[in-house]
Amino acid sequence: MLLKRLTEAYGVSGDEGDIRDILKEELSGHADEVYTDALGNLFFRKGKGRGPKVMLAAHMDEIGLIVVGFEKSGLLRVHKVGGIDDRVLVSKPVVVGKNKVPGVIGAKAVHLQKPSERKKAIKIENLYIDLGVRSQDEAEKLVSLGDYVSLSAKTREAGDNCLIGKAFDDRVGCAILAELFKEDFDLDITAVFTVQEEVGLRGSGVAAYSIHPDVAIVVESTSASDVVGTKDASHVTTLGGGPAITLMDASYIAPQVIIDLFVQTAEKLGIPHQFRRLTTSGTDAGKIAQTHAGILTGLVSVPCRYIHSPASIININDVQNTSRLVKGVLNVIAEGGLTLETTTEKIK
């Protein structure tokens, strides 16, 4: 299963090589053109079609850590890459660097902490990676400064058609687009698997610049907070509630034509769908929409509980329905169902 392979692979922002390799292997036979750019974005292009030029985007990178120093004892000092809650990190297994050296995230044992310490969150400054080595020399033989550190976790099936695992944000988007790209649409399509979304939406803007599409669709994963102790109004999305269409986030406001396109397509095809009920946090959609003289961009996400942790949950129905919705939207675009032209009046 592609999604399992993609999520179990390691690809912290700036170090997306393994994900690129999987996708290249998976899609090269289906594309007319495959290339990468100076940042590492991976592009697959195919098709002609008379319709608008379409960009599909999902980001390959995941949050993680990076080695910034060594203790004499051989423990590694790390900083966070992307937005991680420090409290999630303690006692997690990791792999470090190109050679995937295994390690664990350690902290002072609770027995040795003062009562006042025990009540506090354990900050990254008080965490370290333990490779099981006894000295800095030994550690330096295994890893180097600047090596990326990824949380490691298996992807497993669980509950009622759910998956447990890490990095669904946004490997689920990658998997959906990879599968869709294999199908035929009467369109000029470029699927881009972007880098460095988690460190400030770095990859998508330059990718959109070089493709210069007429319309872009971003497939993301977003928070589902439909859990005990959270009020209905704060659920953001509901697990199993279908693809979540974004109306507005910190980087983006959906144009009315795009909302209509997604909602009407979902209704026509009988696909359950929901709106993302949170307006904070930015996405690649915002960057793409602001490229060149403005690119019409849509954003749809798979709900994910406990996002940005190595034990998150998604629902397989949501994945399938998101895929169906994007496919439906692409067909509508191919049939000329999206008005791209804006009004021009020549007065004199």
């Binding site: 507005m248 406001i253 959906a254 144009p255 009315q256 929409a289 003289a293 403005g294 690119i295 019409l296 791209l340 804006t342 009004t343 021009t344 009046e345 020549k346 007065i347 004199k348």
Partner: peptide, 26 residues
């Protein structure tokens, strides 16, 4: 993100004074 009503009003004010009026997808 929902500026169309104001836009139409401005268009009406200016249509007799300019050579061209157009909108874009932002």
């Amino acid at each position: 993100g929902r500026e169309e009503q104001v836009g139409r009003m401005i268009r009406d004010e200016l249509k007799d004074y300019v050579d061209e009026i157009y909108t874009d997808n932002t």
